[in-house]
Design a protein around this nucleic acid. Structure first.
Lengths: 195, 195
DNA sequence: GTCTATATAGAGATAGAC
DNA sequence: GTCTATCTCTATATAGAC
């Protein structure tokens, strides 16, 4: 470090991401201009473009890496005996792996669905991974509505986020509600499978 | 009618809304330009602006009027005896009133959360209505996570929509899954209230 | 009610000095 | 690594003829 008020490049990059996460979530990606970003940061646009090739790359950097966890879950499911409660155990495992810090990225993705579809390669993203997971857990003769219900058991964190007011909410409460909801839905789905 | 290929003003307006609903949902409101709209319609931008004052008014026209149903539900809840299963019955009533044609507007709202927040007056929109409803159904000492769970019981249609792949899905299946999910969550929430 | 033509502003992005 | 200055394009929206 050459001086006390000198930021390293990596630090600046992190600050940009932090501010972008907030603005992209609150105002939306498209409605947030590079000018909005730089004004909030006390930077110029040129500096911004030194750190990122374009605006989309900022967004892409923010949503990387949850797919890896999902691939692990899929591998785990493949290795399990196909007991009747496999789906329920898988859902529990997934929910247990969801940490409070994941919520920010989830909100971001939820708030910007169209552009998220544009930037994530089909099949390589989290959404595509869930398709694979559900195929693994469902039989060929599973009714469409049962597939939807099954998928909902894995997606209760998003549902809980939508149900919670964005402000003044404790991430721990969101996760707690999501886990209870997932258990309840698992039970309902399992009941259907037995019938 | 003065001729067979002459559209009335109202017809054109409906066509604009139909195309806008599709594009705003697929590409997103901000990413859909007035040019995209007019090209899909075979109209010019000027004609578009004859029918709507601005782009935002098109979006606003698409999301009007679900709030009315919610106000009715709130009034119904107020008139009910406060039995322990009131929340469950209210959720059932709300789900029963959700029709397949509501799903399109829901998808639209979900895909464009930031701009939806911008155009809906705080408190007068559907989101604000739910706050009111939940306050009505929850006690003052209800835990935050229980409030979230309670709200999730009313919001399972959105959750089911998120869990279903947008294409190739029957609205009836989405609604069926949503109703079952809502019942399961109601039961879980009720169990918590008893404990 | 639809058109052609245009006004105006703001976006994303780059050049090149320091 | 950050700056000033600028380019270029596309957006929303309007004026006014038919």
């Amino acid at each position: 470090m050459t001086g006390r008020d000198r930021r390293s490049g990596a630090e600046t990059r992190e600050q940009i991401l932090r501010v972008a996460l907030r603005l992209f979530t609150e105002k939306g990606y498209e409605a947030t201009s590079t000018r909005d970003l730089t004004e909030a940061l006390g930077l110029t646009k040129s500096s911004l473009y030194y750190h990122f090739r374009n605006k989309e790359e900022i967004l892409a950097s923010l949503v990387a890496e949850r797919r890896h966890d999902l691939d692990e879950l899929i591998a785990w499911v493949r290795a399990q005996p196909r007991t009747r409660d496999l789906a329920a155990r898988a859902a529990r495992r997934w929910l247990a792996g969801t940490r409070p810090e994941h919520l920010h990225a989830m909100r971001l993705a939820d708030a910007n669905q169209p552009v998220m579809r544009r930037i994530t390669g089909h099949g390589t993203d989290v959404v595509g991974g869930f398709d694979e997971l559900i195929d693994l857990l469902a039989d060929d003769d599973t009714e469409p509505q049962d597939r939807i219900l099954l998928r909902m058991t894995f997606d209760t964190v998003r549902a809980a986020l939508l149900a919670a007011r964005p402000d003044d909410v404790d991430p721990a409460d969101v996760l707690a509600a999501a886990r209870r909801a997932s258990d309840a839905l698992s039970a309902a789905a399992e009941r259907a499978r037995e019938a």
